[in-house]
Amino acid sequence: MAVLVVAEHDNEELNEATLKAVTAAQAIGGDIDILCAGNDCGSVAEAAAKIEGVRKVRCAKDPALEHFLAEAMEAVIVPLMDEYDAMVAPATTVGKNFAPRVAAKLDVMQLSDVTAVEDADTFVRPIYAGNAMMTVKSGDAKKVVTVRPTTFQAANAQGGAAEVEELSVDLGDLKSQFVGEELSDSDRPELAAAKIVISGGRGMGNGENFHMLDSIADRLGAAVGASRAAVDAGFVPNEYQVGQTGKVVAPDLYIAVGISGAIQHLAGMKDSKTIVAINKDEEAPIFQVADYGLVADLFDALPKFEEEIDKLGYKAG
């Protein structure tokens, strides 16, 4: 058995989601190699080589791989799969984009957004916004798996000393090309990796009011998230959305402010360790999953909350 884990990175740093994918790959079993595909991503390959339990790092560098376009990723990965029994990638927007193409090319059914690996053939994954968990046994010879990072422990990022192999890359004629991007440059932790997340919903009223969440987040070292309604209304950008069709988070503390708690939102945060809901409607469904509920107007509660954590020593950022 051998498993190819496709690293998630930004050409400079290895993303923590990769470490989670390695853990999932270990549960499948066999030798684990990591593919770093990108542009000038030598530092990523070095970091990957240090992950405990990795046999080999394979590095594919090409300007056309800089933005991980699905077609280019497919062209790199599919030929490599002759040597592997499974491919594992984090279920990020990058992984979700290319993995199904690899699966179709190998004529296998992808296992999407897997939350547990029972054995080399058996996987658990959420369906219906996480209102049901499905255990499936794959009859395919090779497995193509995307894993939900929040449900796997990170593999040890240190202790390994894998060799790094440079691959020769032939991408052929690509029919897609990168035009541009608008990425948020925030100093706050990434939503998916933050220990504390504070999210606002339609109840926030407008984007300006999100400053109340920002300043609490800066004190706590938290990430800021949002419901779909807040994103659709233009309060905050799309990458803030937590939920079935947004990001899945499972921090130690999730604070939902002015969010009603629709199933699609719960799907993205109900595995958080401690959930707090602040909502003025005591009937709001969010209270059914909250460990601590505060029935209050958020415009009163948030300033007080900030004062109280200030007393605990969480100073302004």
Partner: peptide, 13 residues
């Protein structure tokens, strides 16, 4: 495209 970090624009034939 809506991606994890924000928005990405690509051109596809």
């Amino acid at each position: 495209r809506e991606v994890d970090g924000g928005l990405q624009t690509i051109k596809i034939n």
